[in-house]
């Protein structure tokens, strides 16, 4: 008990207390008129029937379904390429893919915002130099893909490192045995490496699920460039932020935060259960 107490203290103050406080806040309603009232679960029933919140949730779910597989696929390919030992300049390759992760998300979004700019952005300047008409990447139909591109750029390297580290822990004897059996690099990747990455991939997937539901910085920065596209409820986090800080609805936004946390936990747990079942089926 003595040895875990530093952890427990930090956990209690830094994690449990804010969560409990948010849950407590979510049971009240304080309006600009009328003071603070205990309303029980009213804020939760409001959240369940709040179309604005649902639009945001559906949007991040679509984002999750498309962006995460693409990003993890690229991270997996990069990790396998690194681990194959056949790359020249492997260290440069590794750091090159990882570096975007070191760029703060807000800076990355600003930078990409300039690149996407419909008239003087880099993409359009190249397009007009080559006389290729390009779509407006900050328009309704392209915005989610544009945001997905930014997050993929940011986080592929991070996921690659997790997968690469897992690959390094595969016993070398397995590869030797495979080579004796006549397996090439591709066969080794499919039959040994990818199965060995199962747990690491699960970890990356769960991080990415959490990240997708928490989507905030990128759309928030791009909103200045496309206010008519990115609404205040574009993602659930943006919705909660606007309610809390422009609308002073701290109580309702606390309820949204709790709901969002719950949805994220359920989805992440479902993925984990599903993976475990797959594993058992093998």
């Amino acid at each position: 008990m003595l040895f875990v107490s530093p952890f427990l203290l930090a956990f209690a103050f830094a994690i449990a207390a804010p969560l409990l406080y948010a849950a407590y806040l979510s049971l009240f309603r304080q309006g600009l008129v009328g003071g603070n009232v205990f309303v029980g679960l009213d804020n939760y029933s409001r959240a369940l029937s709040d179309a604005l919140l649902h639009t945001g949730l559906i949007r991040v779910a679509i984002f999750l379904a498309v962006q995460v597989p693409v990003m993890l696929g690229m991270a997996l390919l990069a990790a396998l390429a690194l681990d194959s030992g056949r790359l020249r300049w492997a260290a440069l390759f590794r750091i090159g893919i990882f570096i975007p992760y070191a760029v703060p998300a807000v800076v990355a979004a600003l930078m990409w915002g300039y690149i996407y700019g419909p008239r003087f952005g880099l993409v359009h300047q190249i397009g007009s130099d080559l006389s290729i008409p390009l779509p407006d990447l900050l328009s309704h139909s392209w915005m989610l893909a544009s945001i997905g591109n930014i997050t993929t750029w940011e986080y592929t390297g991070y996921n690659m490192l997790i997968l690469y580290a897992a690959l390094r822990s595969v016993p070398y004897e397995l590869y030797e045995a495979a080579e004796v059996d006549g397996a090439g690099e591709i066969r080794k990747a499919v039959s040994i490496k990818i199965p060995a990455l199962r747990q690491a991939l699960l970890l990356c997937t769960i991080f990415s699920i959490i990240g997708s539901f928490q989507l905030f910085n990128e759309p928030n920065v791009l909103q200045a460039l496309a206010p008519g596209v990115i609404t205040t409820n574009y993602t659930p986090n943006m919705y909660a932020f606007n309610l809390a800080f422009n609308g002073q609805e701290y109580n309702y936004s606390a309820a949204i935060a709790v709901v969002l946390g719950g949805v994220t936990a359920v989805v992440a747990y479902a993925v984990q259960l599903w993976t475990n079942r797959q594993e058992r089926a093998l």
């Binding site: 600009l32 206010p227 008519g228 596209v229 609404t231 205040t232 422009n246 609308g247």
Partner: peptide
Amino acid sequence: YQVYANSIFKDSIGQAITN
């Protein structure tokens, strides 16, 4: 409560202006 009212301007008028 104009601060909030102005914040949700882009959700309605902003969209109509853009489209």
